[in-house]
């Protein structure tokens, strides 16, 4: 496998520049951005929540996530409305790229949940693409059940853990 190290460098080159992370984990802590491992959440990178062009506004006012029912990757009406608003914002703010994170609840096996998260993230990509967002601006990652936002062992927590989160990449220079 002589090309392995080359392939690894290629991936590093593709990873996005500074990555604002509206979720409680992920990009920073898993080493997407130049801050690398343990960087944590760079709240400063999100900008002013009152600035409609800021990732903070996207996160809090547009809504950065949609939810799914058990084993499903179908987008319900609420999810479609959120994603339509996301698409409008992304069209207005073409300097940003996005990473769509797919997640599952903890009530499934680990490998299946990674595959299910990939399917959920892809459902968001396809919807946004149909709304006119270039696929070159979008990447997906699945965390399976590895990164719940709520930890309780009850349906009310599982309901919010089955999600796809649109993470804005700041200064990606797409």
């Amino acid at each position: 496998m002589p090309k392995l190290s080359h392939a690894l460098m290629l991936v590093a080159g593709l990873s996005l520049a500074a990555c604002a992370n509206p979720d409680r984990f992920g990009a920073g802590s898993d080493g997407f951005g130049p801050g690398g491992a343990g960087m944590g959440i760079d709240q400063a990178g999100l900008g002013d929540v009152n600035d409609p062009r800021s990732p903070a506004f996207f996160q809090s006012q547009i809504g950065d996530r949609v939810f799914f029912t058990v084993d499903s990757s179908s987008l319900n009406d609420n999810a479609r409305q959120t994603l339509q608003a996301q698409a409008r914002w992304l069209i207005d703010n073409p300097q940003f790229r996005i990473i769509i994170e797919g997640h599952a609840d903890e009530r499934g096996t680990r490998e299946y949940n990674v595959a299910l998260g990939a399917r959920r993230a892809n459902a968001v990509v396809e919807f946004l693409a149909a709304q006119g967002i270039a696929t070159s601006r979008m990447r997906t990652v699945s965390y399976g059940k590895e990164r719940p936002v709520e930890a309780c062992p009850e349906p009310r927590c599982w309901d919010v853990n089955r999600r796809a989160v649109t993470v804005i990449s700041v200064g990606a220079g797409a």
């Binding site: 496998m1 392995l4 392939a7 990873s15 898993d30 080493g31 699945s142």
Partner: peptide
């Protein structure tokens, strides 16, 4: 998730050297 995305790796236990596979 070393690169930020799930990837498969092989590690040699005697040296702990690791390598990404089929990326």
């Amino acid at each position: 998730y070393e690169t930020g995305f799930p990837r498969i790796y092989v590690m040699e236990l005697s040296s702990l050297r690791r390598q990404v596979l089929g990326d």
